[in-house]
Nucleic acid binder design. Structure first.
Lengths: 211, 211
DNA sequence: CATGAACCGTACCGTACGGTACTTAACCCG
DNA sequence: CGGGTTAAGTACCGTACGGTACGGTTCATG
């Protein structure tokens, strides 16, 4: 029964539909638009059901984050020996995906929501978002960097630092700007290429720099 | 001629005191704690005065941002011929200052506030924060990079891109993490040094790399 | 058909907040 | 002294939201 494409279906189809609608409301109008009554109306369900399923408003928000996180594809980069070219390719794909994820309206809306909720003495949503959202990207990037190092294409003094540098070079300061309302990034492809080039210049071995 | 960087004393001493208190409340308890009644009580003034001075709650928030922005020192780096060593020094100082500013609790609180306010049909606060807060740092960094290039120490293909890279390398993804509630950065000095080293490796001429 | 569970729609309650009006105290200036 | 301006303090209003309760409807099951 549970053995569908996903681990234990955290949410029933009905609940998923409700969460989808809630995310839509959040993206459209921000937290202010995300009232329990509004969600109930938009999703054609009763407030009572909302409280039965999610406990309270905070539970609904947590559920929205968990639900959204469960949708991102993991895209494990496995096996395959890396060449200088394929590493560069992989990195560029990663950079594009990262930019795309960060610039996505659902991602932005959820981040805004969690950030606005932080000072409430219980940064639960913030933690949740850091854990759930970040872990996937983290694992993928670290695996890629490790593979690059094993293939002798990269030399990472400190893996953690290298990872941060990679993300920093890719994202620059765009994320904050977008969170503050700036229009999303254009030319993601070009930016990804440049970021990867910079990263390789910093951490690549001669093997890569020559190619 | 119209672009006067410094405006006349935008707020009276009394108003400044009120804004100071409002910022304190915001830092302590987040937006939720920032009620008009709360500000009035904390600052020993009447709500009516608040509305007289700032128009409405949004005006108060804008005033808080403007007030805070008016406090950051500009620290124009002018004149002085740059050597490889002094450039590195200047860059590291800039990096430390940037990290410090971004990690400051007032900055974080204001950013959270503005971010939480974005979807409300008028990202006014977000724009305000991008303009007021960013411009200073922008000018300083660009002036520094330009000076470095004029001294033959840097080669920036695209100044804008180099500037973004510098900030990206310094900040990495820490800012978002902090906005989401992660504890602030430690070892800012070490991080600043490494970031500058990476930046110089990317954009430095032989003159710098040799030194 | 009867029964019971799930759930929708809505009405309702308490509270908290933004914003306004009014009263009272301090201060300034002729 | 006295009139006038400023602002503190408070009481008040409308509204909106989180959360709860209840009646009605569907639907599966025996």
């Amino acid at each position: 029964m549970t053995g569908d494409t996903r681990r234990p279906p955290e949410f029933s189809p009905r609940q998923s539909a409700v969460l989808e609608e809630a995310l839509r409301l959040l993206v459209e109008g921000g937290e202010k638009a995300l009232t329990t009554a509004g969600v109930a109306r938009a999703a054609n369900c009763s407030k009572e059901s909302l409280y039965k399923w999610f406990g309270d408003r905070d539970g609904l928000l947590s559920a929205m984050i968990a639900y959204q996180a469960s949708k991102v594809r993991t895209l494990e980069t496995e096996g395959e020996r890396l060449s200088a070219a394929s590493l560069k390719d992989r990195l560029e794909t990663f950079a594009r995906d990262l930019l795309e994820v960060l610039a996505g309206d659902v991602s932005l809306a959820l981040n805004r929501l969690a950030i606005g909720q932080v000072n409430r003495e219980s940064a639960r949503l913030g933690e949740l978002l850091r854990e759930r959202g970040r872990r996937q990207i983290d694992r993928r990037a670290r695996a890629l960097l490790d593979a690059g190092q094993r293939a002798g294409l990269l030399f990472l003094g400190d893996a953690e630092e290298a990872y941060r540098t990679l993300c920093g070079v890719i994202v620059s300061v765009l994320h904050l700007r977008m969170l503050l309302g700036d229009p999303p990034v254009k030319d993601a492809v070009k930016r990804a290429e440049k970021a990867v080039a910079a990263f390789l210049k910093l951490y690549g071995t001669e093997k890569v720099l020559a190619g």
